[in-house]
Simulated assay, not measured.
Amino acid sequence: MGKLHLEYLDSNQLYVCGSCKAHLTNNRELISKDFWAGTGKAYLYNKVVNIYTGVLEERMLRTGLHSCCDIFCKNCDCKLGWKYEWALEPEQKYKEGKFILEKNLIEKAEWEN
């Protein structure tokens, strides 16, 4: 088995895994804070790093039928949210290829560069 390679982001406002603090994304990738998940509030992001995806499945969510896969931290295997692969409703297509991170499973890390 090879050595794990993690990507590190250069930003003073990062979101990191709540368990192991691996970098996930930053404020520039944030699309919306108006989402809900199993653990409470959730955020929609354009890009997330240091993750891997689970099995693709169809889910009936509040906004209709979507094809999604759970996302997990590449460093510690904790579940972090999900990725939207496909949306049935035309007004939901903007979510395709985007990521949900559950607020209770991540942390905001701020420091000065």
Rank of each mutant, 00 (worst) to 15 (best):
G2C: 04
K3H: 10
L4S: 07
L4P: 05
E7Q: 15
E7N: 12
Y8E: 15
Y8M: 12
L9Q: 03
N12P: 15
Q13W: 10
G18E: 00
C20Y: 02
K21D: 13
A22T: 09
A22G: 04
H23W: 01
H23P: 07
L24N: 00
L24H: 00
T25D: 05
T25M: 05
N26F: 03
N27V: 07
N27H: 09
N27E: 13
R28Q: 08
R28N: 09
E29R: 03
S32Q: 04
K33T: 00
D34W: 00
W36V: 01
A37K: 00
A37P: 07
T39S: 08
G40P: 04
G40Y: 01
K41G: 00
A42Q: 00
A42H: 01
A42Y: 02
Y43A: 03
Y43V: 01
Y43G: 01
Y45Q: 05
N46Y: 10
N46R: 14
N46P: 07
V48Q: 13
V48D: 13
V49K: 06
V49I: 08
V49G: 10
N50P: 10
N50E: 06
N50R: 06
N50G: 06
I51H: 05
Y52G: 06
T53G: 13
G54E: 14
G54C: 11
V55H: 11
L56V: 04
L56R: 12
E58V: 07
R59A: 09
R59F: 08
R59P: 04
M60Q: 13
M60S: 11
L61P: 07
T63V: 03
G64E: 03
S67D: 12
S67Q: 15
F72M: 04
F72D: 06
K74Y: 09
N75P: 00
N75D: 10
C76R: 05
D77C: 12
C78V: 09
K79S: 13
K79F: 09
G81N: 05
G81W: 03
Y84A: 09
E85F: 15
W86M: 14
L88V: 10
L88A: 14
E89W: 08
E89R: 15
P90E: 14
P90I: 07
E91C: 08
E91S: 12
Q92C: 13
Q92D: 14
K93H: 14
Y94E: 11
Y94L: 12
K95D: 14
K98F: 08
F99Y: 15
I100F: 03
L101T: 00
E102S: 01
E102A: 03
K103A: 08
K103M: 02
N104S: 13
L105E: 08
L105H: 00
E107N: 10
K108Y: 14
A109H: 12
E110K: 11
E110A: 05
W111D: 15
W111R: 11
W111K: 12
N113S: 13
